[in-house]
Design a protein around this nucleic acid. Structure first.
Lengths: 227, 227
DNA sequence: ACCTCCACTTGAACACGTTCAAGTGGAGGA
DNA sequence: TCCTCCACTTGAACGTGTTCAAGTGGAGGT
């Protein structure tokens, strides 16, 4: 009992996430995290290899909350547009407190060296869950696509979500309304593209896009064989 | 004459870019840049506000070389697929020496705080030139699209280029063949989508995409009114 | 010849992220 | 009770990016 280790670890994560929210990335120093968590500086490094490692915790927390908040909001039988809209807006809602984090989010999240990278093997599970959420978006909606696209769509939607996140990070408009508008504008277009897949022209597009995804090794829902 | 200032500045840029190429971002310290350029540490900060400012120079150099290398390679009357392919591959060629730079490229290039950000006002001119290159790709190709799409396509292609760069950064495959394959796979798809714009279905898509771009304020070729 | 000005240069100093050798203390066995 | 072990904790120390008060020197006016 007592669980000295886990207690300290939890206290560090809580303190770090709070400071990240309140003061952003740069202004939150490792010394302050340690002090406010009531431990020494060196001790923080016993639990986390780097400051970026603490951002990884933030990444995981955001992801978890996104999933938990979005799933019950999906309506079985609603349009793809509507369910996708809900999922994307919920994502922005969850990330909102960290907008001040701004570019530093990417600074840490994107580089392939970091385990936070959406493409790294280390975050394969988190990525798989994100794609899984998109699969739920697809399967819970009416008018869902046929075979080939059904398999590809979750990953494609996840990529779209990544792009929207990229826009959000650089979005300095009040309340991030520009990103909100982007979501509202993009979702019907995606739905129209999905419908297009029923026509011969669309079917050919699906085939080609699928081929590229295989060739490049697009992330799948489960840990992919990176070779 | 003598141009003491410009000499020092040029020497700093040359040294920094060389060290970035040879040793990457992190291993290249401001102290080493200053020393190898034959000036004091403080002097480097007289010319460049930050280390990231030197990366901005790298960004500009890469952009300039991309443009200079790609333009003569475009063939008037070739297919859009072919010309776009050339432009994108040339981009990768130019960036290749900096692959080791890896994630740090984005680290510095993407955050909206940094003037290097593709979306910031500070890099509006560089961005405009990049979009301009894509415009040349479009106008030099045969079978170029009609009115509405003709205006939108350059920016859309630039966004595609951004996406491919994003993939390149995290591409650890030898010689970045995966990114090469991505380019070869994506360009014909883009061409097919452009052709689709002639049909009624496609025309409607173009209208909708254009509306979203206006709403969100997508970067234009010239400095946009960011509001 | 002297002075004035200011673009340019310097190195010390600061706070930061990170590392590391040296502890500390409580659980479990003898 | 004492001993051993090791998960956990500590603070000093290193190299980094960045800032700043103090110079330096050459061009141009008198």
């Amino acid at each position: 009992m007592g669980d000295r280790g886990n207690d300290t670890r939890d206290r560090l994560v809580d303190t770090a996430l709070r400071l990240f929210r309140e003061d952003g990335y740069q202004a939150t120093t490792m010394r302050r995290i340690a002090t406010e968590a009531g431990v020494s500086l060196g001790n923080a490094y016993y639990y986390f290899a780097s400051k970026d490692d603490l951002v990884h915790e933030l990444y995981l927390a955001v992801q978890r909350e996104h999933r938990e908040l979005a799933r019950p909001r999906l309506r079985r039988g609603a349009t793809l547009t509507e369910n996708l809209r809900v999922a994307l807006h919920t994502g922005i809602d969850v990330m909102a407190p960290y907008q001040g984090f701004g570019g530093s989010f990417l600074t840490v999240a994107l580089p392939p060296s970091s385990p936070t990278s959406p493409f790294s093997a280390a975050s394969a599970e988190a990525r798989g869950q994100a794609i899984g959420l998109m699969r739920e978006v697809v399967t819970s909606s009416r008018g869902r696509p046929s075979g080939a696209l059904l398999d590809r769509l979750p990953t494609l939607l996840w990529l779209a979500y990544l792009g929207i996140t990229l826009h959000w990070v650089t979005d300095s408009s009040p309340e991030q309304v520009r990103t909100r508008r982007l979501i509202d504008g993009v979702t019907p277009i995606i739905t129209r593209l999905v419908r297009l897949a029923r026509l011969p022209v669309g079917r050919r597009l699906v085939t080609d896009v699928g081929a590229v995804m295989d060739l490049v090794g697009a992330p799948a829902e489960r840990v992919p064989v990176t070779r």
